[in-house]
Design a protein around this nucleic acid. Structure first.
Lengths: 350, 350
DNA sequence: ATGAAAGCGCTAACAC
DNA sequence: GTGTTAGCGCTTTCAT
């Protein structure tokens, strides 16, 4: 059986399609009587208007594309849920485009980003949100930027928690440097002087920024971070345990470690416990992100909250403004927050 | 500037739109020379065909809808990543529809499911995957079933890890009873006789099935589960700690606890540790799901793996078969696996 | 190998 | 308040 259309409804109601369209969209007054007649038919036949046809003529789809590197990383579902809130409120529906960074090298990942960018444009989405991938790079190659900038000319593109230098694209992000400073200050106030910095990737801007801001803060306090205690090269739990084990082999070990994300912090925690250290008595650990599980470890993780949900919410808001051509700030910066839990404590002098 | 269309390309190439369409879709032979001419124009103008228009006439969109209750629950990203794999391979793109069970009562959640069901149908998706929500109910109300069944007549609808009795809908799921049996057997083999069952909701089919299969297995082994040690009412970490605390108040305490999911297991673990119990020496804990963090707790969690990624993969496969009208089994059942880690140990007789 | 033209299902002038 | 009709941008017979 053929799906039923406005024409079918129109015919049976003895009106024109225009009128049916009018009641469907409530776009012009219709005599109450005929409107009711039409509505009855609509529910009688369970008529569902074809959104493709509608979008084709209205030139708006109510669809948004979200490109992210790995939905399996707990950070993203969290921002997604914030985004979802705003999107639903506005009647948007969104494509989830996962470039699966976890199982793919970065070149391949950028290719996937490009594919999705195109697919989304062809699907006529009203806007695109990008996070992770090239957007996280400290120094992305020009073509990588150019491509996105080009798409950004045709439709709203919003960068979340990253950026693309010279792209002119709007972004909403959490103040990286500020977060690192909060962490540094906390540790210093607790009396720590021997602090390691582990996790992240040197080629990513978040790593660069957090690391430099952290070190700067420490130096401003009159101390310094030893070079051999700065270990980059991973954002995973397993890399965290590797970092800690490396630290443990050094002649002198730090009394606190600043982890570039919570996953690494958990790895560090596991390795430390396995090595017989007590946390926080023997070693303070501080994470970054405040993913849900940060409060589920034992001890619970002290960490810098990116307020991910809020980040997503804001992104949803801003993107909608862009879509509706309201005035938007080029960059919206959120302030992170220090969440003190159980994995940090005053320096144990003994 | 207007977006460019096949007509623009056709005109400049001195051919008809039909020909342009032919090279675009490689749907009929085109003289090499003219094809090249067209392709040049396409890349010269960065022409992106309008997928809406295409879908409208082809009556297929390459879009899929996924309805799930809470992307923030680590279980779902995991199955999503498996699904994504298959979907991308086949060129599908999908809408993520989160009904946000976490912040909403269940009536509201079912309403959202209905809304998404309609929105997706209007968007002409090629198929729909549903998980959680009404699909998890032990005894869903008839209208809840009817609605989905109705949509299922118009387009492929696949239920993942749940079911809708009498709906006639296809499903792929993990064998609940088998998983519970594995857990029971493991604990019994370790010598445990005093076992608690905590977590889940009595109105959900997974809870009912796992609980009854577990108890049956224990009874078959000649023992039994005390009524007061069966605690339902939550799937969260915090409910887990509440359950454990409740257990701790009882005159006699179990030597092992079977948790209806990993989140609850983690809560139980936290409460146990806080109460001074050693895990697994004093108390064995076994979870369910094998979410990523199951291996990140200290001690690492013994659990029943739903092989979530595989579940998602299979769902992707099956849905595609449904879409392409290949033969499909009404229900595809996957076998769960016991993953023995550190949170269970032989009964400590002392 | 290519073109003409009729849809796909809906919206939006414009006319009455 | 309602109808007519021309799109929206592409695919697909049917001719040629």
């Amino acid at each position: 059986m053929k799906p039923i259309t406005v024409y079918d409804i129109a015919k049976e109601a003895n009106v024109s399609v225009a009128t049916v369209s009018r009641v469907l969209n409530n776009t012009a007054p219709v005599k109450k009587e005929t409107r009711e007649r039409i509505n009855e038919l609509i529910s009688k036949y369970q008529f569902q208007p074809n959104a493709l046809a509608r979008s084709l003529s209205k030139k708006e789809t109510g669809m948004i594309g979200i490109i992210l590197p790995d939905i399996t990383n707990p950070f993203f579902p969290e921002v997604l849920s914030g985004f979802d809130l705003e999107a639903r409120k506005r009647g948007y529906t969104y494509f989830l485009c996962d470039t699966v960074s976890a199982s793919v090298d970065s070149a391949e990942q950028y290719i996937r980003e490009s594919q999705y960018l195109n697919a989304l444009a062809e699907k006529q989405v009203d806007g695109i949100v990008m996070m992770g991938g090239r957007v996280d790079l400290a120094k992305p190659d020009a073509p990588l930027i150019e491509e996105v900038a080009e798409i950004g000319k045709r439709l709203p593109v919003l960068l979340v928690n990253g950026r693309l230098p010279k792209s002119g694209l709007n972004r909403v992000a959490v103040d990286e440097r500020h977060g690192a400073e909060l962490a540094a200050q906390h540790l210093i106030e607790l009396g720590h002087r021997d602090i390691a910095i582990v996790g992240g990737f040197r080629h990513m801007s978040n790593t660069v920024q957090r690391t430099s801001a952290f070190m700067k803060k420490v130096e401003q306090s009159g101390f310094e971070v030893r070079k051999e205690w700065v270990l980059h090269g991973g954002f995973s739990v397993s890399s965290g345990t590797a970092f800690m084990n490396r630290l443990l082999e050094l002649p002198k070990r730090p009394t606190a470690v600043f982890c570039l994300n919570d996953l690494v912090a958990i790895g560090v925690l596991k390795a430390a416990v396995k090595a017989g250290l007590r946390v926080p008595e023997d070693l303070s650990i501080i994470g970054y992100d405040d993913i849900p599980f940060a409060s589920n470890s034992i001890p619970e993780l002290t960490t810098v909250s990116l307020r991910t949900h809020e980040l997503g919410r804001t992104a949803g808001e801003v993107l909608h403004q862009m879509i509706t051509r309201s005035k938007v700030n080029k960059t919206t910066l959120l302030k992170p927050e220090l969440v003190i839990r159980e994995s940090t404590a005053a320096l144990n002098k003994s």
